[in-house]
Amino acid sequence: MKEFRPKIVGFLCNWCTYAAADLAGASKQEINPSLNVVRVMCSSRIDQNLLLNTYYNGADGILVAG
């Protein structure tokens, strides 16, 4: 059986969590490639349409961080 690799979309705020993810990158922290980051200008931008659309496109999980 194929190993289950969840597809995760992370909506990250440009000013805080996206900057934190950049920092994780700069410190060469390993991050599972299943996480796909989409940058937004504020996590409050994420509404129900975006969430549903993301699941519709095959996401197994969504991270909204801000």
Binding site: A21, D22, A24, G25, A26, K28, Q29, E30, I31, P33, N36, V37, R39
Partner: peptide
């Protein structure tokens, strides 16, 4: 598209990193 901090630097497996960069 940020393939450095969000991909190359955090994905040790070169093949996975390449695939992810293409997706991004």
């Amino acid at each position: 598209v940020n393939i450095r901090e969000q991909c190359a630097w955090v994905t040790p497996d070169k093949e996975q990193a390449t695939k992810k960069a293409v997706r991004m």
